Amino acid sequence: MGCSNFWSGLLNFITLVLSLPIIGVGIWLAKQHDTVCVRFLEWPVIIIGIFIFVVSLAGMLGAWCRVSFLSWLYLFVMFVLILLLLAFTIFAFVVTNAGAGQAVSGKGFKEYHLGNYSTWLQKRVDKPSYWDKVRSCLSDAKVCNSLDKDYPTLTQFNAASLSPVESGCCKPPSSCGFTFITATNWQTTSSSSTADPDCGAWSNTNFCFNCTSCKAGVLQDIKQDWRKVAIVNIVMLVFLIIAYSVGCCAFHNNRKEGGFGGGYGKQGYP
Rank of each mutant, 00 (worst) to 15 (best):
I27M: 08
V246T: 11
L73W: 07
T194R: 02
L147Y: 07
L86P: 03
V67E: 05
E42G: 12
L240V: 06
S190Q: 13
W64L: 15
K149M: 04
F239I: 09
R135W: 05
R124L: 00
I23D: 01
Q267P: 08
C199P: 10
S193R: 01
L57F: 14
S4M: 07
A103Q: 14
I47T: 12
Q102V: 12
W64S: 02
D196R: 01
F109D: 09
D132T: 11
M236I: 13
W226M: 12
V143N: 01
R39C: 00
T184D: 03
R124G: 11
R135H: 08
M1Y: 10
S71D: 02
K31S: 14
Y264F: 15
D140F: 06
K31P: 03
D148L: 02
Q267V: 11
N5H: 05
C176Q: 04
I47H: 04
A141Y: 05
S163R: 11
C144D: 04
V232Y: 13
Q122H: 01
L147G: 04
T194W: 07
S190A: 13
V67R: 09
C65F: 11
D225Q: 14
F13M: 09
N145F: 10
A141S: 14
C137M: 09
T179P: 02
Y74N: 06
K171T: 07
I231K: 13
D150W: 08
P152V: 07
Y269H: 13
L20A: 08
S56V: 10
F91W: 15
H252F: 09
N185E: 11
I181D: 10
A243M: 03
F76L: 14
Y74K: 00
L237R: 02
S213C: 05
V246W: 09
M236Y: 06
F91M: 09
T119C: 00
G49F: 08
N158G: 06
K127W: 03
G261C: 13
P270I: 09
N12T: 08
G26R: 00
N145A: 14
S19N: 01
T15K: 01
I46F: 08
S192R: 00
S213M: 13
S191L: 13
